[in-house]
Design a protein around this nucleic acid. Structure first.
Lengths: 120, 120
DNA sequence: TATTGTTATACTCTATAACTATA
DNA sequence: TATAGTTATAGAGTATAACAATA
């Protein structure tokens, strides 16, 4: 994560902004609370983050007609593009960091890492 | 590191305190600046950290007779004991976190992780 | 003049409680 | 009353510059 920060800065994103965009790229959030839980972030801090992302035109908040307390949060086309660009940069850095390993070792390493993360 | 924090708290240590103690357990520091560089910490923040560790009786600072600007920093017997206890807790947690892997996989995983860290 | 340790300051990040509007 | 979103505030962590003592 420390190594990834400079890459994200190039794309104008903080670590938490990238986490939010990544979650929203998979699927829009039914509420801000749901998004906060999905990325393991504090709901009160998410507000300011979404304010910035909305002002930058990367996300939009819409009141849920079914429950007017909730805000549905989704990526704009610009938000999708920004996330895709940042993710490409992150993946390139990951490949560089794993450069000490052979292709087969990289697959084994990523697989074991995923198993450990699932466990925890 | 996030998972290790509660373990360190049980031993009354912050992450940076544990990093400093670990470095000093290998060898005393010839200066505070050397210790800061060894653990990748800011020299100005190290001062307050060492103040706390010294007050807790875990480390001692002595003027270097050869260069009276420098402080030699070393662990006290209490500091060695505290570090050993914390390290044991950390190792137990590591084993738990790697529990999803077989013994052979754990060895391979740790070896690859070390190679990646050396590269970076 | 350069270096070690120190202090002061501002800035960011984080955690908690209280408020509003809706249900 | 309970929940989603919001605001305010205090605290912890961090970065930077400036200073005293020593080399």
């Amino acid at each position: 994560m420390k190594a990834e920060e400079p890459v994200l800065r190039e794309h104008g994103l903080s670590m938490w902004a990238y986490a939010a965009l990544s979650s929203l790229a998979e699927r829009p959030a039914t509420s801000q609370l749901a998004l906060a839980k999905a990325i393991g972030y504090d709901k009160t801090r998410l507000i300011g983050l979404l304010d910035e992302l909305a002002e930058a035109g990367l996300v939009v908040r819409e009141r849920d007609p079914a429950d007017r307390r909730s805000h549905i949060v989704r990526l704009t086309p610009d938000g999708e593009a920004r996330h895709a660009a940042a993710r490409a940069g992150i993946r390139a850095l990951e490949d560089e960091l794993l450069g000490a390993l052979s292709a087969a070792e990289q697959r084994a390493f990523r697989a074991m890492l995923a198993r450990i993360a699932d466990e925890a």
